[in-house]
Simulated assay, not measured.
Amino acid sequence: MLGRITLALLLLAAPAWAENWRATYVISAAGVHVMDAEIRFTLGPAGTPYSLETRTRSRGVASLFMRSESQARSEGILRAGAASPRRYQSDGTWRGMARRTLLEYGPDGTARVTTLEPAQDLERTPLPDDARRGNIDPLSALVLLTGHVRETARCDIRTRTFDGRRLVQFDVTTDPIVQVADRGMLRCIVESRPLAGIAMDRPIEDAARPTRSVLLFGVTRPGAPAIPVRIDIASRWWGNIQANLVELTSAD
Rank of each mutant, 00 (worst) to 15 (best):
132 R>V: 09
96 G>W: 05
89 Q>A: 14
132 R>F: 09
94 W>L: 15
126 P>V: 08
142 L>V: 14
104 E>M: 12
130 D>K: 01
139 L>F: 10
133 R>N: 06
133 R>E: 13
133 R>F: 06
133 R>L: 12
112 R>N: 14
152 T>K: 12
89 Q>I: 14
150 R>E: 10
134 G>F: 03
138 P>R: 13
103 L>H: 09
149 V>Q: 11
94 W>C: 00
117 E>L: 14
101 T>V: 15
127 L>W: 08
102 L>E: 14
138 P>E: 06
116 L>K: 15
103 L>Y: 09
94 W>E: 13
93 T>Y: 10
90 S>W: 13
133 R>Y: 04
117 E>R: 14
103 L>W: 09
103 L>F: 07
130 D>C: 02
90 S>C: 02
138 P>F: 06
98 A>Y: 08
117 E>C: 00
103 L>T: 07
149 V>G: 07
91 D>P: 00
121 D>R: 15
113 V>K: 07
147 G>Q: 07
128 P>I: 07
131 A>G: 02
102 L>N: 03
151 E>Q: 15
131 A>F: 01
110 T>V: 10
143 V>M: 07
130 D>N: 14
128 P>E: 10
126 P>E: 11
130 D>V: 01
91 D>V: 10
148 H>W: 11
109 G>F: 03
134 G>H: 06
142 L>K: 01
119 A>V: 08
131 A>C: 09
92 G>A: 14
110 T>C: 11
128 P>A: 08
144 L>T: 05
100 R>K: 14
114 T>A: 12
139 L>K: 03
98 A>W: 02
109 G>E: 10
112 R>K: 14
128 P>Y: 07
139 L>W: 05
145 L>F: 03
96 G>A: 06
147 G>M: 08
149 V>L: 11
133 R>D: 04
143 V>S: 03
